[in-house]
Write a protein that binds this DNA or RNA. Structure first.
Lengths: 146, 146
DNA sequence: CAGATATAATAGCAATTGCTACTATATTCA
DNA sequence: TGAATATAGTAGCAATTGCTATTATATCTG
């Protein structure tokens, strides 16, 4: 968050989001909703609490986001078979279609972002960022489901 | 925003923010305010519009954030000498003190995040992320002031 | 098992955010 | 120059967010 890596990572991630949002603005989905959907894609069956943690909003906020996205037919709440207090979240087929349509956009953006880097450099970048991520998430004892 | 770099960068940046926020929660400053202050530190004299762009909020939202932070004595609006419609933003001495106090926290966090990486790897990581950032910001023709 | 405590999610209300319209100033160009 | 257009920032109102308390269920302890 000072000079250094933290700042750099945040800044690059922001530019990524910005470029991505610019290309998906006409979907009627907000940036935060996209964020939620992409995380949900990677963690299908996750509960609301952990997903709220992932996208950095309060549980009650996520609860309402799910209300709206469920109403829009993109997300589905299913009862947790092992805990009757909890919901498990799933993307609908419609959300899958949307994500599919986004795929080429994401791929093109990735290409642009890594322009001028060799394949080896890209691999190295991924490996290094993954290490950083592992370092940070280890200490945080963040429990993700599924 | 799909598999790949974009997702990884966002995810790591999020963990960074999370860890940082956990350590600064008692300052009474929100995460978004921190974000604004750290960007402002790097762009002193910036106008409201471009800063809003940087922290990804609408201009009116930034306007109100500045209202509150100015009232809290952390940020100062000075008239732009060349454009009477615009304000230029500066951090106060008090904000400088706060940032100073955060420095060790940020440094320690950076160390933890790069644990297990050699100095050379850290350099390489920085260099590669900087390239990505340059790629992304070039295309976006983002004009920053000062 | 029963009571105490913890956890997942949600409701009410106050604060924050953003869409739209608006004011003030700057720039463009006929 | 001066009218037309663009830009920096702000106000009103509707929507979103989050703090605090609450309900329902789970887990822990004796």
């Amino acid at each position: 968050m000072s000079e250094t890596i933290g700042y750099l990572l945040n800044d690059s991630a922001r530019l990524f989001r910005r470029a991505f949002n610019a290309r998906t603005r006409d979907t009627g989905i907000t940036a935060l909703q996209w964020r939620m959907i992409t995380y949900l894609k990677r963690h299908e069956g996750i509960r609301q609490g952990p997903l709220a943690e992932l996208i950095e909003v309060e549980p009650i906020t996520l609860s309402r986001m799910v209300d709206r996205l469920a109403e829009a037919g993109l997300v589905e709440r299913r009862a947790d078979p092992t805990d009757r207090r909890a919901w498990r979240l799933y993307l609908t087929a419609r959300a899958g279609d949307m994500l599919g349509a986004m795929r080429p956009i994401a791929e093109k953006l990735t290409e642009e972002a890594t322009e001028g880097l060799s394949a080896a450099e890209v691999d190295q970048l991924v490996a290094l960022v993954e290490k950083v991520r592992a370092n940070l998430s280890r200490r945080e004892c963040l429990k993700e489901t599924a």
